[in-house]
Design a protein around this nucleic acid. Structure first.
Lengths: 149, 149
DNA sequence: CCGGATGTAACAGAAGCTGTTGCGACAGGG
DNA sequence: CCCTGTCGCAACAGCTTCTGTTACATCCGG
């Protein structure tokens, strides 16, 4: 499973920030977020750094520093997160140029680019339909009760 | 560009087989296909082997061996090719389990699975809308004339 | 049988992602 | 003014995946 988990990590961090905000805690440190995602704080700083450059979160430095959402979670879509983390597109073209002497080799790349463009568009539409608030709500609805307690 | 070019390679090979069939040449060797894709014949055999297991192409062994389409290119969709080559899904979940003590960590995975499932569904619908015959037609339409001749 | 082509294993190189360490930069509090 | 906690970022290792390559066994039409 070496697939892209960047979008997952970023969405997790944002949902956690959204929940903290709702609970009245304005900022979280990268270490606090990392504790929930179960990874290294530097990984979280990298991810939140992408989101900061995209204007989705804000950071305060110095003592008492931490991260907070730039706007309400209802107005942050997964599409924005997807663009912010710069995930790799699902399909790539030939990594070496096809043989241009061949009629297929000559025209296949624009042909597939068209198809892949439509796929990407459909993917983006789906991501745009879900907000961080939706993710947060779904997460809270889906949490199972602790097994034996 | 380490992205998945498997679908691209397979679609290229199939379009080439479709064109050869239209021209009256029933079978092509992996070497002939590799010459158009501009890669190693073993790469093509791997790819076409996937397609053979999915029933999209047939292979004849022995002398005069080679590959041919199992059915008309109009009836082979890119979705079938996608399933045959077993490309990786665009998004992956956490590679380490999130912290289950945290309300987000507990419910985020099913929440994101739902979103990712909808994305995958949209992607599949787009791929199902394009056939190898479409790819062939688009390729022939898009080939640019040789620069100076 | 022979020859040409496939099937498949094994390996190397390149690239990407994650995790980790280390250190400089920054700012609020004492 | 310094101290301390936190971020920013570079660098590196480990892992995995993908592609390309070589090598060799297997198959089967002529």
């Amino acid at each position: 499973m070496a697939a892209n988990s960047r979008l997952t990590i970023a969405a997790h961090a944002l949902a956690w920030l959204a929940l903290a905000r709702r609970r009245g805690q304005e900022v979280l440190t990268s270490e606090q977020v990392a504790a929930s995602v179960n990874t290294n704080p530097v990984v979280i700083r990298r991810s939140l750094g992408d989101l900061r450059r995209a204007g989705l979160v804000e950071v305060r430095r110095g003592a008492g520093a931490g991260w907070s959402l730039s706007r309400e979670p209802e107005r942050i879509t997964l599409l924005e997160v997807y663009d912010a983390v710069d995930a790799r597109p699902p399909f790539g073209l030939h990594r070496t140029e096809p043989n241009l002497e061949c009629p297929i080799g000559r025209g296949i790349r624009p042909a597939l680019s068209g198809v892949y463009g439509r796929v990407e568009h459909a993917l983006r539409q789906e991501l745009a339909a879900t907000s961080i608030a939706d993710v947060l709500r779904e997460s809270l609805a889906n949490r199972q009760e602790p097994a034996g307690r």
